[in-house]
């Protein structure tokens, strides 16, 4: 499924923080993980500004790491503030998802 951009925009920070909590990663790696999870193909012009914004807000912390081939990479790791923000966003997401699920289930059980 291709998620339309305004929707994605609302949840991109959540997705990025969640992936960074699993393991620190660099921009292109995060894009591949998002695509592999079937969430979205995020263009670079959306992904990198979001990462810079997380860095600027102190939610993610960058460090430079080597790569097997080519130039060095900027790895991001989640900060304590990032974890707290992620927790808030996760509970928002769950409330949101529960609400939508309830609407779908209600429609499936009582079709007219």
């Amino acid at each position: 499924m291709v998620v339309s951009r305004p929707w994605l925009h609302g949840f991109l920070d959540l997705c990025l923080l969640a992936m960074l909590r699993e393991k620190p990663d660099y921009g292109y790696g995060l894009a591949q993980r998002l695509a592999a999870a079937g969430v979205a193909d995020v263009p670079g012009g959306t992904l990198y500004p979001a990462l810079l914004r997380l860095e600027q807000q102190g939610l993610a912390e960058p460090s430079w790491g080597p790569s097997e081939s080519g130039p060095r990479r900027k790895y991001y790791a989640v900060t304590p503030a990032g974890r707290a923000e992620l927790d808030t966003q996760v509970s928002e997401w769950q409330r949101f998802r529960t609400g939508i699920d309830a609407l779908i289930v209600a429609g499936a059980e009582n079709p007219r």
């Binding site: 921009g27 292109y28 670079g44 012009g45 130039p71 900027k74």
Partner: peptide, 19 residues
Amino acid sequence: EETAQQAAECAAAPDSLFG
């Protein structure tokens, strides 16, 4: 510099990645 490096890690030309 960061933007250049981001394009490099995607192995893409900056204008095709960012416009």
